[in-house]
Design a binder for these strands. Structure first.
Lengths: 215, 215
DNA sequence: GATAAATGTTGACGCCGTTAACAAGAGTGT
DNA sequence: ACACTCTTGTTAACGGCGTCAACATTTATC
């Protein structure tokens, strides 16, 4: 007799798994991955801690679920930034602006939702498992971000702005730049930059990156 | 009567603070910041958990100390990579190679000592304090890395390889690239790259970065 | 409607960080 | 040499965490 729905209390929650994930997401959004505590999520939902074990292997699984959601939200932010872009006549110019827009969408999410962003890239027990059994993690849709980025880089090549021989590994270079910048701003030595300078640094980094890609 | 020194047991340890830090560093090296647990460090040293509170405000302080050591070790790795470089006649070429060497030294440390590297950039209670009182963290020698990088970039300008108007913010762009790459390889989507491809990605990213800086 | 499966609950365990109260050495002045 | 004090250890205890085992309740199935 804990959760209520339509005014009626009920023993079975009905959608406890998602409710716990929602609660955990809220925690992650507020304080990052280390604030995702199973008991607190259960408390929020109004359920006993052990109830979570009917839906998750344990704390690690719950965190993993939040992580995936964070990755999805990140990809959404990037897609949104691209979608908001006007079409251009010059395909080269359009490809470059698209690439930068992706970077901005990425950074916007990281800075707007630092807790979720950190969680999206946090180390998870699952990661280490994969290390041991040598598996790939191929079918994760969570890194849709990666696909978006790849397309943008392909467009750069197609538009003749990027030399095909520089194409391999370009995702890594691009992602590294924005990811590193985001973390340096969130947790690192760039943490206490005034907003104005911060924007300048972001634009500068994106400019350097695109210049390097289109070398 | 716990610690012994020269075969003689003694009540007072003599250098407990450092001993705890050493133990904590070992933990961090093995499993990253979340493995730094005060009680375990005390256990290793052979002392009661609460003894640590004579030397640290608490767990956060201990972690902070490990973090600083990690940052110093990182800077050392970079400096070492630079020192190992042969002098060249062409100052432009030398400046570029120095920049890349710094990047390689950075990445080498990150990949050789993932636990310490993560700890060097982990979020610490101290960070949030700073957020609140708006203080800068100016006099930290830990980011000697930053100084090294700045000098390398200045050299690029001095040698005429980098346009002065691109100099501001260049540290951010450079650091972001290598930092992001390190984390993507350690925890992110580049985690399970075969060693060979990994090296290629690293070289490619450094090439893109330098190309962007010397645009 | 009985029986099984799914989904909750309570209680307990060990580990963590942390605090309070106490004890043992080390240092110092007479 | 001795008493006093400060420093640096100790034990005992608290609450919070993740987790497991055992039990209870609701829902699904024949």
């Amino acid at each position: 007799m804990k959760a209520t729905h339509g005014g009626r209390a009920r023993y079975h929650h009905g959608d406890l798994r998602n409710a716990l994930i929602e609660a955990a997401i809220e925690l992650a959004a507020l304080g990052g991955p280390e604030k995702v505590v199973l008991r607190e999520a259960a408390r929020t939902v109004g359920v006993s801690p052990t109830a979570a074990y009917r839906h998750f292997g344990g704390h690690g699984d719950l965190l993993e679920a939040v992580k995936v959601r964070g990755q999805q939200a990140l990809a959404d932010s990037m897609a949104e930034a691209v979608a908001a872009l006007p079409g251009l006549d010059d395909p080269g110019e359009e490809a470059e602006r698209t690439a930068k827009a992706i970077g901005r969408g990425y950074l916007r999410f990281a800075l707007d939702q630092p807790g979720l962003y950190r969680t999206a890239f946090c180390r998870t027990p699952l990661d280490e498992e994969d290390d041991f059994n040598g598996l790939q993690a191929p079918d994760r849709p969570e890194f849709a971000a990666f696909v978006l980025l790849s397309e943008a880089l392909d467009a750069l090549v197609a538009a003749g702005r990027m030399r095909p021989e520089n194409r391999p590994g370009a995702e890594a270079a691009a992602w590294s730049s924005v990811h590193g910048l985001a973390l340096l701003i969130l947790d690192g030595p760039l943490a206490r930059l005034p907003g104005e300078e911060r924007d300048a640094v972001i634009e500068g980094t994106l400019a350097t990156l695109v210049a390097g890609l289109t070398r």
